[in-house]
């Protein structure tokens, strides 16, 4: 069970899965473009026209994409928050490493965007779903003025 008892609606589940698939595809493209690079090359390969990733950054993206897909598939808000933490860790790692000798994921500012977008997207979906569930639950609870027990006291 997720925190607060909230699970994902169908549209949220679909959106989370799409974000996971996009991240997964970016990671797979990274594997293709960074073939031949050392695993943690600080200057990652240019992936299409979008971003830079080395093999480690590509595999991490594949893992995060897979985790996000599972979170959506199982409608698990808890797993979605775990994925958000992973995306945040990638943003921090690339920010600290960009254009430096030690750049474990081989990323640039574009790579920050590649992880920031799905991270903020999944976070927004999970928080909005939880807030909407709470609002619905609050609407369903009887008001104190309608509660005969409350009126007697």
């Amino acid at each position: 069970m997720s925190p607060g008892g909230a699970t994902m609606s169908e549209s949220t589940r679909r959106a989370v899965v799409v974000l996971g698939v996009l991240t997964l595809l970016g990671g797979i493209a990274g594997i293709v473009y960074s073939a031949g690079q050392s695993f943690t090359a600080p200057g990652g390969a240019r992936v299409g026209e979008l971003m830079h990733l080395n093999p480690l950054g590509s595999w991490v993206s594949i893992g995060l994409g897979g985790l996000t897909i599972v979170a959506g598939w199982r409608r698990s808000i808890t797993l979605a928050f775990v994925a958000v933490a992973g995306f945040a860790a990638c943003v921090v790692a690339v920010t600290l490493g960009a254009n430096r000798d030690v750049n474990p994921l081989g990323g640039t500012a574009s790579t920050v965007g590649f992880h920031l977008g799905p991270g903020v997207g999944v976070l927004a979906l999970a928080l909005a779903e939880r807030a909407a569930s709470r609002a619905t639950a609050a609407d369903l609870e009887p008001r104190s003025s309608d509660d005969p027990e409350h009126q007697r006291s």
Binding site: S9, S11, T12, R14, A15, L19, G121, A124, L125, A128, E129, A131, A132, A135, T136, A138
Partner: peptide, 21 residues
Amino acid sequence: GLDAALRPLWQRSNGRLARLL
């Protein structure tokens, strides 16, 4: 876009942040 999935959730929420979003 993601806004299409998020807007129905924000519309169900009562918070000020949801209205801003």
